Amino acid sequence: MPRGSQHDLTGILLGDGPYPVLRVDDGGEWRLDVSGRYHHLLGRRVRVSGTRSEFDMLDVKRIEPA
């Protein structure tokens, strides 16, 4: 997947480390560069839209409960 590609993903939002992590259904994980409020979604199933900025990082445009 090239950098700059758009992604719409669904999974569980985890709060490990300096970045929140989205664990998707196939077992993959994405680090999320997200600003704003997201802590109330930790541990819940969410839908994330964003742009790939690094190997395993998404710049989040939208995050919401799934």
Rank of each mutant, 00 (worst) to 15 (best):
P65D: 07
D56E: 06
V46G: 00
I12K: 12
D56Q: 07
L58F: 04
D33G: 01
V24Y: 02
G11L: 02
D33M: 03
E29H: 04
L9A: 05
R52C: 06
I12R: 12
A66V: 07
V34K: 10
R37E: 04
I63P: 03
M57Q: 14
D25C: 01
R3H: 04
H39C: 02
D33I: 00
T10M: 10
I63C: 05
L13R: 05
I63G: 10
Q6C: 03
K61R: 15
M1Q: 10
D8G: 06
M57L: 13
L41P: 00
F55N: 07
G17C: 07
D8I: 14
V60M: 02
M1G: 15
D26N: 15
D25S: 15
L58A: 09
V24D: 08
T51M: 11
G28A: 14
P20H: 12
V24R: 07
S35Q: 13
S53I: 15
P2A: 13
R47Y: 03
L41H: 01
L41D: 01
M1S: 14
G4S: 11
H7C: 00
Y38W: 15
G43N: 06
P2F: 04
D25G: 14
E54T: 09
A66C: 12
R45W: 10
S35Y: 12
R45G: 03
V48Q: 08
R23I: 00
G43T: 04
P2L: 11
D59G: 01
P2R: 13
L42Y: 12
L42Q: 05
L41S: 01
R31C: 04
D59V: 12
V34F: 13
G28P: 00
M57A: 09
I12C: 01
K61M: 08
G28E: 12
Q6T: 13
G43W: 06
P18K: 08
D26S: 13
P20E: 11
V60F: 01
D25V: 10
L42I: 15
L14W: 04
T51H: 02
G50S: 06
R52S: 05
D59W: 10
L9Q: 09
L9D: 02
